[in-house]
């Protein structure tokens, strides 16, 4: 301890992988946000700008939490984006065409999540099929199914739904607008759900026995088995929880966009994976932090906002930006990993 505690480099060396990667993420996010404020004007200083990032990414935050859990356990799930599209379309059809209630649509979203979790979890954990293949099939199934449920995209007209969608939670702080009137910042309901999920998942993964099991299984399956952990059940649970969260995330997404379309949430799985990786979750499993994932989502959307407001507003830049970020952080992880083995 004495040898290591000299100076910052010593402290960094003695950190666990999880904390080191979390530190990198938070630093990157803060630097990026400061950079945005300095170079792109004071717009980024307004509380509402930050709240809008949250509003737009509430669903992504929830999905990313599930994704991080699966990745910590050593798997991956790329079906979450497809599920969001399927849930949006199914719920839109249920509410508008079949006259279903809001509660019924929520149950439907959870039901789809549960069904996905049970099937994918079973295939991955008990039949030992590669999670990527399983969830790739899951993604294509969801996308195809969305078209089968309804082909044309449409907006939900229901008044009860619109009321829920437009519910805003005003915060005690805000900014002065152009007329000099003080305006409270607001967030949508989805953000509250997302924050609750982040906090619950953080507590779950940090301080419960089952939560630690996920790290153990992802870190080393063999030793986890020796410790008496039920590896298969843990893997199954990770996929089940991920899909359930994807179900909730899908509903929050639906609540945000208020329409059903087969092209909804395109690339959401990619964003969720990228957020988790940027947030310090390792693809090899065993390393990760939900708070990091939360910052990962924020970093990703901040850089997207920067790219958009810097004038590169064509749609393709967004894809390239995400890919570059992902590539960068994957290489960082690879270096961190090799640091350990040296």
């Amino acid at each position: 301890m004495k040898n290591n505690s000299t100076g910052i480099t010593g402290k960094i060396k003695s950190m666990s992988d999880t904390n080191l990667l979390l530190l990198i993420t938070v630093v990157v996010f803060v630097l990026m946000y400061i950079g945005a404020v300095l170079f792109l004007g004071k717009g980024f200083l307004k509380p509402q700008t930050f709240c809008n990032i949250l509003n737009e990414n509430a669903a992504l935050i929830i999905m990313s939490c599930g994704m991080s859990l699966v990745m910590i356990t050593g798997g991956i799930d790329i079906s979450v984006g497809g599920m969001a599209a399927l849930i949006s379309m199914s719920c839109a059809v249920l509410i508008d065409r079949k006259g279903g209630s809001l509660a019924a649509s929520m149950m439907l979203a959870l039901g789809i999540g549960l069904a996905y979790g049970l099937i994918q979890g079973f295939l991955v954990a008990y039949l030992e099929i590669q999670p990527f293949i399983v969830s790739l099939a899951g993604m294509f199934f969801a996308r195809g199914m969305t078209t089968i449920v309804n082909t044309a995209p449409f907006n939900v007209q229901s008044k009860a739904f619109a009321a829920l969608k437009n519910t805003r939670v005003y915060l005690p702080f805000g900014s002065v607008n152009k007329r000099g009137v003080f305006v409270h910042s607001y967030v949508e309901i989805g953000v509250l759900v997302a924050l609750a999920v982040v906090i619950l998942m953080f507590i779950f993964l940090r301080w419960t026995r089952l939560g630690r099991n996920f790290y153990a299984v992802g870190g080393n399956k063999q030793s986890a088995l020796m410790l008496g952990i039920n590896v298969k059940r843990t893997k199954f649970l990770s996929h089940l929880i991920c899909s359930l969260l994807a179900g909730i995330g899908g509903y929050v997404y639906f609540l945000h966009v208020g329409s059903g379309s087969a092209s909804h949430a395109a690339g959401a799985e990619m964003n969720a994976i990228a957020s988790s990786i940027i947030g310090g979750t390792m693809l090899t499993g065993g390393v990760g932090n939900i708070i990091g994932t939360f910052f990962g989502v924020l970093s990703l959307s901040t850089i997207k906002n920067i790219v958009a407001s810097a004038g590169f507003d064509q749609a393709w830049w967004s894809g390239i930006t995400v890919a570059v970020m992902l590539c960068l952080f994957l290489v960082i992880q690879s270096i961190v990993l090799s640091r350990k083995s040296r």
Partner: peptide
């Protein structure tokens, strides 16, 4: 997955 996301944009 990196190229899968960026490819069509490129």
């Amino acid at each position: 997955l990196i190229l899968y996301t960026a490819g069509r944009s490129i």
